[in-house]
Amino acid sequence: MAVIVDILSWIFLVAGGAFCVIGMIGLIRMPDVFARLHGASVTDTLGAGFIITGLVLQAGLTQVSAKLIIIMGLILLTSPVATHALAQAALHAGIRPKLAHDETGGHIAGAEAGAGEDESSNS
């Protein structure tokens, strides 16, 4: 039984570490800020999630597991807020994403003047 738990947490820890590295490789390879956000989000969700699942399996049903689950919950609650704030701030600072397809028709939610250049002046 202990062997099965050990093997499972090996798998989860190695997968989590791999996803952390993959996300950061994405952070290096992607062409602009908005695309890099997706790489960082892989690290925040899958990397952290798998590593903490592996640690919970090792800790068993103890206070340590409860704290680890609290950490995971906090990461899942805070990381989208930080990512969204970052994306919105980058857009308001006048950085335009490099796009292959623009499906918005020039209209960006919340901006009265569409995707114009005057947006950076009134922000």
Partner: peptide, 19 residues
């Protein structure tokens, strides 16, 4: 913003390192 993003990822990774 790239640097803030990298700092944010560093924070998440630091949490994992601490654990």
């Amino acid at each position: 913003f790239d640097r803030v993003l990298a700092a944010n990822s560093t924070g998440t990774l630091a949490v994992l390192t601490l654990a």
